[in-house]
Design a protein around this nucleic acid. Sequence first.
DNA 1: TTTTAATCAGACAATTTTATCTGATTAGGA
DNA 2: TCCTAATCAGATAAAATTGTCTGATTAAAA
Lengths: 142, 142
Amino acid sequence: MTVFFSKKCEYGLQAVLFMAARDEECVCPAEEISKQLNIPKEFISKILQSLTESGIVESKKGKSGGFKLAKHPSKIKLISIVEAIDGLDSFNSCVLGFPHCSPDKPCPVHHQWGELRTKAYEMLSSETIDKFKEKTLNKIRI
Amino acid sequence: MTVFFSKKCEYGLQAVLFMAARDEECVCPAEEISKQLNIPKEFISKILQSLTESGIVESKKGKSGGFKLAKHPSKIKLISIVEAIDGLDSFNSCVLGFPHCSPDKPCPVHHQWGELRTKAYEMLSSETIDKFKEKTLNKIRI
DNA sequence: TTTTAATCAGACAATTTTATCTGATTAGGA
DNA sequence: TCCTAATCAGATAAAATTGTCTGATTAAAA
C-alpha cells in the first residue's frame, strides 16, 4: 500500500479538525467524535490521549467530560499534529529508501521529490486550522 | 510512521533500478541484489517474483540463474513498478482519510494535495529508467 | 545421464500497525 | 453520599507488513 499518513495520523487530523470546526470551547466526548467520523471509539480515544501528552488537546474526565483543544485553533497547524503522531522523518528520508540520500549522492528522483516534499511541508505548516473551519464543516456536515 | 512507498515498493524500485544500471542483459541472482542493496535475500526474491508476474522482470531458474529485466530499460517507467507493487490507490484517495473527497466536497487540503500528487505521478511516469542509469550507478557504486 | 550446486518459489514466522475489550478512575448530579 | 457517565490505561486480538526457512526446480558439469 502507498500512503502518506498512517491511519493513526489521518484519524488524529480528522478529529482535531472536527473539534476546531465545532465550537472551539466545547468538550467533545470520544464517542461523539467516533460516531461523526466513523472511527473506532477506543482507537480515537487513544490517539487523542497521545495528543494530550503533546499539548494539542486537553482531556476532562468524569461525567460531561471529553476532549477539547488545548489552544485556540488559530495557534494549531496541521504539521504539529503530524509531528506529534507520525513524526517528521519522512520529510528527511529518501523516498526510494536509499541510504544516505543527499545532494552529493542523490537518488534518481532526489531533486524532484525534495521539491514536492518541501511543498507538502509548507502546505501543512502554512495555515492554522481555524482557516479550515469552513471546509471541514462542509465535509462533515455536523 | 509517515511513508510514501511501502518497504516492498522501495526495495522493488531499488532492485529494478539496480538491474537497469548494470548490463541490462545480465542475469542477477537474488543474492547479489540482496548484498548490493542490503535487502534480505528471500524478501527481494519474493518481490521480484511478483514483478515477474507483472511482466517487468523475468526469472531464470537453476545454476547461473537469477533475475533480469523483461523489457529494455527504455520501456520501463517507475510508475509501472509502483503500480505493480503498491497499486495506484493513493493517487486517488484523500490524504486526510476523509471519505468521498472530491472537488464538490473537498477536504481542507484537497486542492493543494491534489496538485502535489499529480506532480508526483508525473514525475514517476515522465521518464523511463534508462534515464536514471547514471544516478543509480553513482548511488550504488557497483 | 547422473550428480550437484545454485536458483526460484511457496509456506511459515516475526514484527508492526490497527483495532477491541475490560476494568480502574474520575467527576458531576440526584 | 451514592450512582452514573465518561475518560484513562493496560491487556488482548486481528490484520497487514516485513522477514526467514525449507524444499522443489533447474541447468551446468562430470
